[in-house]
Design a protein around this nucleic acid. Sequence first.
DNA 1: GTAGATGCAAAAGCTTTGCATGGGT
DNA 2: ACCCATGCAAAGCTTTTGCATCTAC
Lengths: 161, 161
Amino acid sequence: MTRVEKGRDLARKGEHHHKREDPAEVLNRYIARHGLKATRQRTLIFETFYAAGGHLSAEELLERVRLEDPKISQATVYRTLRLLTECGLAEARNFGDGQTRYEIASDEHHDHLICTECGRIEEFEDPEIEALQEKVARAHGFEMTYHKMELYGVCPECRSK
Amino acid sequence: MTRVEKGRDLARKGEHHHKREDPAEVLNRYIARHGLKATRQRTLIFETFYAAGGHLSAEELLERVRLEDPKISQATVYRTLRLLTECGLAEARNFGDGQTRYEIASDEHHDHLICTECGRIEEFEDPEIEALQEKVARAHGFEMTYHKMELYGVCPECRSK
DNA sequence: GTAGATGCAAAAGCTTTGCATGGGT
DNA sequence: ACCCATGCAAAGCTTTTGCATCTAC
C-alpha cells in the first residue's frame, strides 16, 4: 500500500498564484506570539509532515517520525497536528475510513480524487464545478461557506493491473 | 488496505421513476434468502428508521427506538443498521462530526446541502455537476465509481435570524 | 430442536487528557 | 525559575464482538 508523494506538485502549484510564506516561519511566529516553545519534537514532526506532502493520518505520521526518533509519543503527534491546524498550516480531512487525515493547507481550495484500490489521493480544482455549486446552493436559499467533494474511482496504475 | 466505503450495489437499477419496491418487502426477502430471522427488534428498528426519514446516527436511532422498547440494545441497532445497509435499504454517510449517519437509500444519487447553524440537511442532485465530475476524473486517468459532495452554508431560516 | 438474534459487557480503534517529569526561554 | 511540552498510561467516544440466553422457524 504505497501512498504517492506529491510534495513537489504542491509546491509547483503554489507558485502559480501567490507566493506562500515560509511555513517554518509561520509556525515560529505562531509559537512566539502565543508563548509556546519550539521543541525538538515539534520541529521534527513539522518537517516530517511537510516532507511527506500531507494526506497522512496521525498514525502514519507517527510511524515516519519514529524512524528519526523512536521515542516520540503518539500524544505529541496528535498535539502537534492540532497546533499545525490552529496556525493554519494543516487541515484535517476525513475520507470516511475512520481516520482523520491531515494535509498541508494551501491557499487555493481543492478537492480530491481517491483510488479505491490503492488509496492514492490526487488533488484537483475545477472552477466550473465550483460555480455550479454556488448556483445550486443559492437555488436552495443557502449562503454557501465551503464545500467538500471527493471522487472515488480506480487510478491509472491500478486500472492497468 | 483501503477501507474506503463499500460500493453501492443499488439493486434494481432498471426501475427508474421513483417507483421503489416496498422496503419492508425488500427486507423480508433479504432475510428469507439469507436464512435470517424476522424479529420484533428488527422490525421496530427498521420502521423507526424509515419513519424518521433517515440522516440519523446510531445513537439517535437508538434513542427513538427506546421510546417504544426501552430494552433494545445498542448492539442490535448497530447490527440492524449494518443489515439494512447490506440489503441496500440504508446508506452510511459521514459528515465529519465523528459519527456515522445513515440515510434511506434511494435509487437516484443525490448530494447534500448542510446548514452549519442548525444542522439541517437537504438533498439535491445536479446532472451538470456530475458530468463535469466524470470529466475531471477521466482527465486524471481515473475510472470514477462514485462520489461525495457536500455544500456547507447557512439555510434560509437561519439567515433570516 | 436448531441456527440465528439479542442483551450485556468487554474489547477495539482512534483521539484526548491527567499527571509527573523534562526542557525552552 | 517559570511554565510549557513531553511521555506514559488511562480515559473518552463510537463501533464491534464474545458469550450466555432467548426465540423465530
